[in-house]
Design a protein around this nucleic acid. Structure first.
Lengths: 183, 183
DNA sequence: AAACTATATTTGATACATCTAATTATCACT
DNA sequence: AGTGATAATTAGATGTATCAAATATAGTTT
């Protein structure tokens, strides 16, 4: 006979993930996690939270007895942490690279976090690392993106920018060569 | 008395948007759009499609009489086209910039398209334009991202890359100056 | 400890998207 | 025109996430 409800392999819904993330975050911010706070954080009413807590409890993602303090299980903690990580990375991408304002970035990251696989997320990370560390066109370079956004593509400026890049590179190459020589 | 069901200002659900996009795409691929094809495209059963067609019809997004050919209304067409555009742009970003494989990119773009606002989408576009057109580090530059992904950050290579960039820039600056002079 | 307030839960309802099984319509062919 | 195959719809059910109203519990204050 098959397992009656083999719940363990059913994927979590986006809503469940959002609750776990919220509980994870609240757990770091406050001594105890309250229904009221979860409701506020997620913009839902308290009965909705209670109902979801029962679901999460059935799926062994939280320890929960009614009217008592609730805690993430190991499993729930890992999910919450992972979703938080996704949120953080995607929001960084939106704010630091695309220059989206924080509030909007936060809202959109919250939806994107359910759309993007772990491997794609890794690409986002690598891409951001690449921009910042190697070949170190990073932060300066992104300022030009800003200018591009605001003023469009202006050939003269483009030339000027490239000259700046060139001399910037010269400086950096020197610095790096010195470091290399020391080794 | 208020409008009985002021449906016009209710936002569309992601599912509705997916159906409109699918109908939009099928409309371009085939003479007529069939329930069966929509079902196949979206991975749902036919009754689900029928039911959604009724919803879309009530909301004046399609012209639909049962058993007859269906067509997008002007409004539905615009939504379908917009969602298609989002899909396309996000997928491009994933495949062309982050190097995610096409199939995965397609699946993830399909979820991301409901998470990203029009203004953020514009930033994605501008960012991709910026990478490709100005300051023209574009395609070459992305090859280095690939290498970075695969081999990590290797200082020697980083230096080599920067030297390449520098000389590449020199060449381009020359070319551009010639063009500028002609003006 | 009694009373009041804040917090949480239960109950019952709604909306949405989906499914299976049963039914009905359309189309193509002989 | 009748029949069989394909396509579409209806009917009825399920699961998820939400809400408002009513109720119950916990915590605080006098």
């Amino acid at each position: 006979m098959k397992n009656k409800d083999d719940i363990s392999k059913k994927p979590l819904t986006p809503a469940m993930e959002d609750y776990l993330e919220a509980i994870f975050n609240l757990g770091k911010e406050k001594r105890v996690v309250r229904v009221k706070d979860i409701a506020k954080r997620l913009g839902v009413k308290m009965p909705t939270v209670t109902s979801m807590l029962n679901t999460l409890s059935k799926r062994k993602l939280i320890d929960y007895e009614k009217y008592e303090y609730l805690e993430l299980t190991k499993k729930g903690f890992n999910v919450g942490k992972e979703i938080h990580r996704r949120h953080h990375i995607l929001r960084s991408f939106l704010t630091d690279i695309l220059n989206v304002d924080l509030k909007k970035a936060d809202k959109e990251a919250c939806k994107m976090e359910h759309a993007v696989s772990a491997s794609t997320l890794d690409r986002f990370i690598e891409f951001m690392e690449f921009i910042q560390f190697c070949p170190r066109v990073g932060l300066d370079w992104l300022k030009y993106f800003d200018e591009y956004r605001l003023h469009g593509q202006e050939p003269d400026k483009c030339l000027a920018r490239m000259k700046e890049f060139e001399s910037g590179f010269k400086g950096r190459i020197k610095t790096m060569e010195v470091v290399e020589d020391k080794k």
